[in-house]
Design a protein around this nucleic acid. Structure first.
Lengths: 214, 214, 214, 214
DNA sequence: GATGAATGAGGTTTCATTCAT
DNA sequence: AATGAATGAAACCTCATTCAT
């Protein structure tokens, strides 16, 4: 079973809002959804794992889908947290002299986040293609915001001459697919014993810095 | 409905082996699996779309899962086709002078392949996390073979000084995630009107070449 | 929502006996039972409409059926009120010279009663076929009493030569179905704008008087 | 269990259209719906009584409500059969000299019909207040047609001086409530041993003839 | 090879009722 | 008196699969 404290802290949900049984339901649902996928998970299975009557699930969530969304939606909000810095320009000027420094901070931070939320991350990635509600939320609230913020960052480093002249859309795509590839290899493919974390991260950063340079 | 000829050609299945009803079943299954996912698709839905009685599906496939596998498995084989060249060394020596040429040929080829098989590609990517049988097949027959072949390629260009010294695993990871990111952006995210194919491909190639160079 | 005073007055229930929440429960139950029928009404729906917790209903009524009976039973008692006159013979001699006068008074009185209790009347009529308890109550306490009283009335007017010689059972049946038909047309079928109350009532009375006359 | 032949004949349904199991389902549903009401009847109960798996019901009817409607709707059509005579005027001229003859024929015919379909009649009467679909069908296809035909009949006998001058709506209402009252007393209230059929019918006819006369 | 009726296990959801607070 | 979380039985319905034709 999940160490539950983690979930509530990460999703910054007010722990008090949930009854103990509800917390068990959420924890159980996360584990099974991640393992089998939403459609292949039965509510009776969740109830059993949570040690709860099946009816109890439906006291708290009108439908099975509502349970899924209540779990995944807050996760999406948290994903863009590091980009919701109020004045990202100032941060860029002061905190990160070079693109390399910025990338290193970014990757470390997101890697830590995903590490603490692997299961939620899995569910999000796996269900995004099927759940219209998630897609809408993702496009409206997440993708748009990420894009606006990253465009600023890209232009900032293009002005400084660290990123070659190229449409920022393309830069963002190349950047995101490299990061995603890194995270997916790290958490879903390569077994953790084989993975040399520091070295791989440095190589990924070097690859990005060189690939994007003029 | 799919233009069906395509499927049989691409999967190099002997068209004669299938009854007309069976072909309709396969075509229908591909479309619905891709749209809703395997677990959320019912056999009755497939039967209806195929214009076939429910029982007919089970004449040809013992179970629903067998139907899925019979669709996805040949797809996996085809995916590695360009790497199953008998003597890849010779090809490298003669055909592609530079890494850039090799990458260009490779990406164009795979892009064409995925374009003709988007639906099958979707199903593969979406079901891989859930279907043990697919994972096994993928690891044993696909991933391993790809890895062996690509390692040769990587070492070949490392010797030529076009790729920096780095574990080939890492090179392959960086390479694949860039290509995958390219394909996913191309086929699943960016609307086809907005996508400037030639330019994006060139930028992706430049990014790879520079990122991997010494 | 019902104007609640009406209910308590009509049913001559001691208003003081009920807590405010209980009154809301009764009012809500009447409305929903009348609209959807007892079996298709859920206690949670009643609770929501009453603005009360689900448990509260079961503080006051052991079961859902007890709630129904507590609502409909007093209604039945009230229905026969005008016939529970202690010495109906005296009344007949003095108050109503002719059958016509008697019928007119009777119909006006019952029409007014039903008008003030349409919802309760609906529930009674709709549930009578299904609730054994109601049927028993109805047969023992209502039907029997009505019959005994009406038999006296019928014989009274037969002696006066205003009703033809015929078994009183048949007279009562013809009389009741005419009245019921009148009430049902008035309250359930014909829209109130189209209904010419005075005229229809007179025609119904004429029909009865003539139909029953020698 | 119902004698099944009756149902199919009465509803003039093509017996061949139904599988044996489906016929059992319909017969079982009719009995239980009539006894307990639609809402209080469970599909599992119907399945058990029909000797059929529960799933079988839903192969033939998408929902429980569809089962209900498929049973009651044809019944409504049959109810107005005797009025759907192509040229009702001719029939009136030739066949029935007096109102009394007409009424006698009519009542006997409908009594026979209801007798053969008591259960269906019960279901119809009991569910009409709750099922919007039934109400719509009833108003559009039944009530309107009945009204049009009966108006002709009423005017016919008014011209012959056998019915007093009065809005035909009112005549029809008085007529229908008397007939309904007769049928309900006959089939739902008075036990069959006590009911003197011929006599009661004659009295009802006399009552109507006199009540409606000038 | 093809059908489609039939199945029964299991799916999601509803519901009357209980009980600790 | 009132709450509302919790229950578990049962509701309606879906589904993969079987089988006689």
């Amino acid at each position: 079973m999940l160490e539950q404290n983690q979930i509530w802290d990460q999703l910054s949900l007010d722990k008090e809002e949930f009854t103990p049984k509800q917390k068990k339901i959420i924890a159980a649902a996360i584990e099974i959804f991640a393992e089998k996928g939403y459609a292949a998970t039965s509510t009776s299975e969740i109830a059993k794992k949570a040690g709860v009557a099946e009816g109890t699930i439906f006291r708290h969530y009108k439908t099975k889908k509502e349970l899924l969304l209540s779990i995944v939606a807050p996760m999406m909000a948290k994903m863009i947290a590091p980009l919701v810095i109020k004045d990202i320009n100032r941060v860029l000027d002061k905190d990160y002299d070079t693109l390399e420094d910025f990338l290193r901070a970014m990757i470390k931070n997101r890697e830590a986040f995903v590490e603490k939320n692997i299961l939620l991350f899995r569910i999000l990635v796996q269900e995004l293609p099927f759940q219209k509600e998630l897609q809408e939320q993702f496009l409206e609230h997440i993708a748009a915001k990420i894009y606006i913020r990253m465009e600023k960052v890209v232009m900032h480093y293009q002005e400084k001459g660290e990123i070659m002249v190229m449409p920022s859309k393309t830069v963002i795509r190349l950047f995101l697919s490299t990061i995603f590839g890194h995270l997916i290899a790290r958490f879903f493919i390569v077994s953790s014993e084989e993975w040399e974390d520091e070295e791989e991260m440095e190589r990924t950063i070097q690859f990005l810095v060189k690939g994007l340079s003029e």
